[in-house]
């Protein structure tokens, strides 16, 4: 009995030794091109811009309030719109990647879908300052019609 139980274990490892097809591990840095993610994979927060350098962020600070860690800081300015009215617009959308826990609460909170999670997961840098990012591109504007 005792020996039978030992042999059955050895049969299993022996089977895997001789049937070496399935590989569990990934050759990570080499398979960067073929890595696939679920579409909801949370890498880091990005703000998509369209071809006219326009984003959808109104600066409502819903994400800033939703964030549990103070990762997001929105600096606003007053802008004069085309119709002559003063309007609030974002000056800088500051994102501290070093404090982010990728909980997705800001994405859910955003009423205009201005931010989303990218699939970039390689975040290491040599200088911590690089982790503080400004998400809106210079001179970008808000898409017309987004309130």
């Amino acid at each position: 009995m005792a020996i039978k139980s030992l042999v059955s274990g050895m049969r299993l490892t022996g089977y895997y030794f001789t049937h070496h097809k399935e590989i569990l591990t990934q050759e990570y840095p080499d398979n960067r091109e073929t890595l696939t993610f679920g579409e909801r994979f949370r890498g880091e927060v990005v703000m998509p811009h369209d071809e006219n350098n326009e984003h959808r962020c109104t600066g409502c600070t819903a994400c800033e309030i939703a964030c549990p860690n103070g990762t997001i800081k929105i600096l606003t300015k007053m802008e004069v719109g085309e119709d002559g009215k003063k309007k609030k617009a974002i000056e800088k959308f500051v994102y501290h990647l070093g404090m982010c826990t990728f909980c997705n609460l800001c994405i859910v909170a955003c009423p205009t879908d201005a931010i989303k999670m990218s699939h970039d997961f390689e975040h290491s840098v040599f200088d911590r300052k690089q982790l503080t990012k400004v998400l809106n591109k210079p001179d970008s504007k808000i898409v017309k019609g987004v309130e």
Binding site: T13, G14, Y16, F17, H20, E22, I23, L24, T25, E27
Partner: peptide, 13 residues
């Protein structure tokens, strides 16, 4: 290599 093959891995490569 033996360990890797028994554990469904590639081993040193």
């Amino acid at each position: 290599k033996v360990a890797a093959f028994m554990q469904l891995r590639l081993g040193p490569n």
